[in-house]
Design a protein around this nucleic acid. Structure first.
Lengths: 223, 223
DNA sequence: GCAAAAGTGTTTCACATACACCCATGT
DNA sequence: ACATGGGTGTATGTGAAACACTTTTGC
């Protein structure tokens, strides 16, 4: 039996939530699209394999990554029985873009508009999206997707694209700021409005201390 | 490489939260304590293997079970490399007790007072407890542990033993009842008090429809 | 009658929502 | 000046928490 990892890698470019896919350069199913993945080596854990693969792809360390679920249907891989441990990764797309390892033929797709995937990878993506929505409603997780400097309206756009709905800007801003997880910077982003919106950065210390605390980020849908 | 499943089985006897462990009847480490587990067969998924093992042990179908996490450290099993997919199961201890399959040498231990476990099973238990606390704060999950007839104070005892703290009985009762997940029965339990507490049962229809809704079961600790 | 646990009532407070309004600035 | 998006102020309502109180029953 083979053990593999597959990574559902989410990125945000300031507009839309994206998903990183690779076009397989090898058989079987060469040319088709799949998640970034690879086999777990005899001397490493699945966690280590996922970290290794992400590092090779991006050149970056310290990317947010979390085990999602293990997929083990006996016929999930058509060639040989392979169990796959799926991981979700969240990364700031700007940083990533510059370093994408070319060997992978990796492409960012809008989250709701990507090619068909091989094996059970679509199941994995669905589960990852579901879990992202779940977690982001309770934890300040989506900050992991933001660049080092960002505005509150940009962050709101990310939330709105994750939840496919619109939030009140005033309430959103207050809620985010009430966590005290952000530090206001002196300068403004003037690209998206005339008035300009202040930049913020994550207060890493507070963020690391509070990220697993329950915080209510998403408004209740009034039915 | 071998693929195994291990089950963290929680039970509630009306007083304390318990954990089911087995004394190994085979080498290696015969006589030591471990979680209930087994190997995944070539023609089954990990989910199916966990369900099969639990069924064999208990004789029961339809027990609540959920994949917890996959443990894959290369040296986690001292004999041969074995990756284990861990599952959490919640079951009504009264039902279970009667049917425990004797081959397993299974014993219920109080959750905070059990023997040392082999391999990384203690890690699994810790993670399962953590996840149980997390989920039960948001979902009516702990109802899975209750017998077919139970009182609100009994349920409160379960919550209190999961969270190691005491809740206000009035607020607890209102909160649970506000979910509309319980149906009041005509008779009372008079063993635990003179006045007696009404029995309730789960409204299965509503429960199945609402179990993944966000509900706030656990009072915020005021620091 | 009294003790003990079940269950109800009530006050208080925090906070989410909705939405009106003001602010800063590029054109 | 005015349109545009950023940001603040504020009224309203809901619901959690705290805790006093009533109810029921066995002894």
């Amino acid at each position: 039996m083979l053990l593999a990892v597959d990574c559902i890698i989410f990125g945000f470019d300031g507009q839309d939530l994206k998903l990183l896919l690779i076009q397989r350069g090898f058989q079987p199913r060469k040319g088709e699209w799949s998640l970034v993945g690879g086999f777990v080596q005899p001397d490493e854990s699945a966690d280590a394999a996922a970290a290794r693969i992400l590092k090779k792809l991006s050149g970056l360390d310290g990317i947010y990554m979390e085990q999602l679920h293990t997929f083990s249907h006996p016929q999930r891989d058509t060639v040989e029985r392979t169990v796959s441990v799926a991981y979700t990764a969240l990364i700031d797309l700007q940083k990533f873009k510059q370093h994408l390892h070319e060997d992978f033929h990796a492409v960012w797709f809008p989250i709701n508009q990507h090619p068909e995937l091989i094996f059970d990878h679509q199941l994995m993506v669905n589960k990852a999206k579901e879990q992202l929505r779940y977690k982001a409603a309770l934890h300040p997780l989506l900050l992991e997707l933001m660049p080092s400097k960002f505005t509150i309206p940009q962050l709101q756009q990310l939330y709105e694209s994750v939840y496919n709905s619109e939030f009140d800007k005033g309430n959103f801003s207050r809620k985010i700021l009430s966590t005290k997880l952000l530090v206001k910077l002196a300068d403004k982003d003037k690209l998206n409005s005339k008035k300009g919106a202040f930049y913020y950065r994550i207060d890493r210390k507070r963020y690391d201390a509070n990220k697993q605390a329950f915080l209510n980020f998403v408004p209740d849908p009034k039915i």
